[in-house]
């Protein structure tokens, strides 16, 4: 696929939009993650994002508008090269619309595993919205200072038989704001595959929300993707038929 879109916004939405069921009496790994989730959770949102993909000496810039409600979300690209290209996630189905060809494609199978436009997240990474606690078991393994912040270090191991892309994860969560400053994603056997870092946050609606992050693919030399939230509104009213297939082709 020549043109691939990336919802980094969705990364934020999904990876961080964790609905976690679990007790939170003392600070267990699970409890920490629940707090992370509570910080990020919202019913709906409308945001504008910019994504910069660096690969060696090449750099590509994408801009997009994102509508999100519950399990569904719509991403529309606004940068000149990809203008009009749209992605629609409905539950666990992913659709892509090419305006020039007026072509609507369902993305499935091994296409899901490809990275978007040479970026360092795959479609599939975006798709995961299942409850992470059902898939991973969390364990608080200590505390660390990251720069000038105090963080909890939580390790997540995939549960037996769980179908997740990353067998292990490690998250550094701010002890105060519960912002997950750094996350490392590992393969089975412990090989580090990707690193996600939050570079900047902002106070929005009383929460500390990440507005800039970077994802790095550790298997490639010099490969990095930056995402910046230009503006974002939570709990907005989204028109009923916006998050539907019809709206894509219309």
């Amino acid at each position: 696929m020549r043109r691939r879109g990336l919802w980094t916004g969705l990364v934020l939405l999904l990876v961080l939009n964790l609905s976690i069921v679990g007790a939170a009496s003392e600070l267990t790994g699970a409890a920490i993650m629940e707090r992370v989730d509570a910080n990020m959770h919202f019913e709906s949102s409308h945001s504008t994002m910019e994504m910069v993909i660096q690969s060696g000496r090449r750099e590509m810039v994408k801009e997009m508008i994102i509508w999100s409600e519950g399990e569904d979300s719509l991403v529309e690209f606004t940068n000149p090269g990809d203008r009009g290209t749209k992605y629609l996630k409905l539950d666990d189905e992913l659709w892509m619309f090419f305006p020039d060809a007026e072509d609507l494609v369902r993305i499935s199978g091994h296409m899901l595993r490809q990275g978007f436009m040479g970026s360092d997240m795959s479609y599939e990474d975006m798709m995961v919205s299942d409850k992470l606690t059902e898939l991973y078991s969390f364990e608080l393994v200590g505390e660390e200072t990251l720069g000038d912040r105090q963080t909890y270090v939580v390790e997540a191991k995939a549960q037996e038989g769980a179908e997740v892309s990353y067998a292990q994860r490690r998250v550094w969560v701010d002890t105060d704001s519960f912002v997950p400053w750094r996350e490392e994603l590992y393969a089975v056997g412990g090989r580090l595959l990707k690193v996600m870092e939050i570079l900047e946050t902002a106070e929005i609606d009383g929460r500390t929300y990440p507005i800039e992050m970077a994802v790095e693919d550790k298997l490639k030399q010099d490969s990095r993707t930056y995402v910046r939230v230009k503006d974002i509104e939570f709990d907005v009213d989204i028109p009923d038929d916006l998050l539907s297939l019809d709206s894509l082709t219309f």
Partner: peptide, 13 residues
């Protein structure tokens, strides 16, 4: 390095 998927779909390098 070859990155593949295990039976459960997790990445393996």
């Amino acid at each position: 390095t070859v990155v593949m998927r295990t039976v459960t779909g997790a990445f393996q390098a």
